[in-house]
Nucleic acid binder design. Structure first.
Lengths: 259, 259
DNA sequence: CGGGCATTTGAGAGTACTCAACCGATGTGG
DNA sequence: CCACATCGGTTGAGTACTCTCAAATGCCCG
């Protein structure tokens, strides 16, 4: 098992990967031009279909990838067949970097996508010459850590509605980072994916979406597409914490404890 | 505001910090002897009382710390006065390393403790010469990330009993790493701390502990001390997922969704 | 057109929360 | 030395949110 070949059905390998070096975020951010060029040369671009795996937990971590377009989910398969979704990744995001020699989780595409592959060995030999690169990796890891902790907070403190609202606002931010309006979003993941990410059942997710539609907070003009119609309302639901009045009833003030 | 002086009431600064370099885990793990010696010289030891802050979110990250004895909690204060506890740290653990120039969260002691302070600037200048050190930092960050993700999984999938059981088994592992039997544990944190960590109310935590005591799974011979009396039982409750029969009733098979 | 999949909706059950009172230990001041 | 306040913890009763089980709908694809 490794991160190439059989795992990537119908992969079309193109020559080099301009978008990687050009991206304002991602791996190259803050690197000097010469280093960016070196990364540029170490990269190749792949086109992959929805539901294919970029890599699997336990595979040898021979490469890191940046997402050029499409969306991916990072997940850990649970022994009983369920899955815990660690997070979603969008264009410009880096996936698969790790300090270990094996990937710590699966990466699966939730839509057709183009990824940019950077050889791990190349990256590491570069990072020996270029202090900025290893620092950048630590920064990225710290960002992921912060995101995981925000997610922890959401799971601990927020109601189902609050979690979904916060999730939608996260999608919005991802869209804006990539030059979108942040109002008309692609929603390629299934209710099951969202539930596995937020710690809710499919039914609960569906009910929350139904309530958001009824409340006029969002519209779903078509499958896989979502329009944020009432941003303040969503932000109130997501709340910086979990409070704020839900769409119906007195809601859950979330538990208190500290002073 | 910075990580020294006023924040550290009654701090007693001793000369150097042998235990830091000697620790088999922590910052020095895997470093060459000369590098360990350099870190050794850059470190000083502090004695701090329970409830004091090692650093606060937003403070300039001028130092990293290793816990020599005692226990600490990492937390983020929420706008409404509550707190989200990110994790607990035990002897041998490193706290306060980050890629940013500010700490991303508070670190508070839950018991009297001795910490070993390593100057950040010293650490960074070392890491420029010593590739192993920055790699080690990335490794530590990746470990924290994995722990946060485990915690996410627990919050999403496990019942209150499962979370508490998993928490106790985590304490057990920390005790064993530090040479204890893993059976007779110190439990310096309050129910509120545990609740804020696990996403439960004080009352729920208390009820779960009561149930564990009634079921003979644990004993609390005195305040702040806990004996694990039925390890298999606790492991069954904690389950690799959230299933397994609870102490009473049919319990929560946790939600399913994936294939 | 039929099968499979994702989603929706309904009814009922159960876990964890809320509110509230009480207990024991600790610490302070009269 | 004791009254009293405080803090952490425990326990009880009732509520409410989310899960479970079940069935129906709509959509895509062969």
């Amino acid at each position: 098992m490794d991160a190439s070949g059989l795992m990537m059905p119908r992969a079309a390998v193109t020559a080099a990967c301009g978008a990687c070096a050009g991206a304002s975020r991602g791996l190259c951010h803050g690197l000097e031009e010469a280093d960016q060029a070196a990364l540029f040369n170490a990269a190749s671009s792949l086109r992959l279909p929805a539901r294919s795996a970029v890599f699997r937990e336990g595979d040898r971590a021979n490469a890191v990838f940046t997402l050029k377009d499409g969306a991916a989910k990072l997940l850990r398969a649970l022994p009983d067949g369920r899955q815990q979704i660690i997070g979603f990744r969008f264009p410009g995001d880096l996936i698969g970097y790790t300090a270990r020699d094996r990937y710590p989780c699966d990466a699966e595409l939730v839509s057709d996508a183009t990824v940019c592959r950077v050889d791990r060995g190349r990256l590491e030999s570069m990072s020996r010459h270029c202090a900025g690169l290893s620092h950048r990796l630590l920064e990225l890891c710290a960002e992921d850590l912060a995101a995981a902790q925000d997610q922890l907070n959401a799971m601990a403190q927020k109601s189902a509605e609050g979690r979904v609202a916060a999730f939608l606002l996260m999608l919005r931010e991802a869209d804006r980072r990539n030059g979108g309006t942040g109002l008309d979003l692609s929603l390629p993941m299934t209710r099951a994916d969202i539930g596995d990410y937020l710690g809710l059942t499919i039914e609960s997710v569906s009910r929350v979406f139904a309530a958001l539609r009824r409340g006029g907070l969002v519209k779903e003009p078509q499958r896989g597409r979502l329009r944020l119609a009432d941003l303040p309302g969503l932000e109130a639901l997501a709340g910086s914490d979990g409070a704020a009045a839900p769409l119906s009833g007195p809601g859950r003030p979330a538990h208190r404890s500290a002073a």
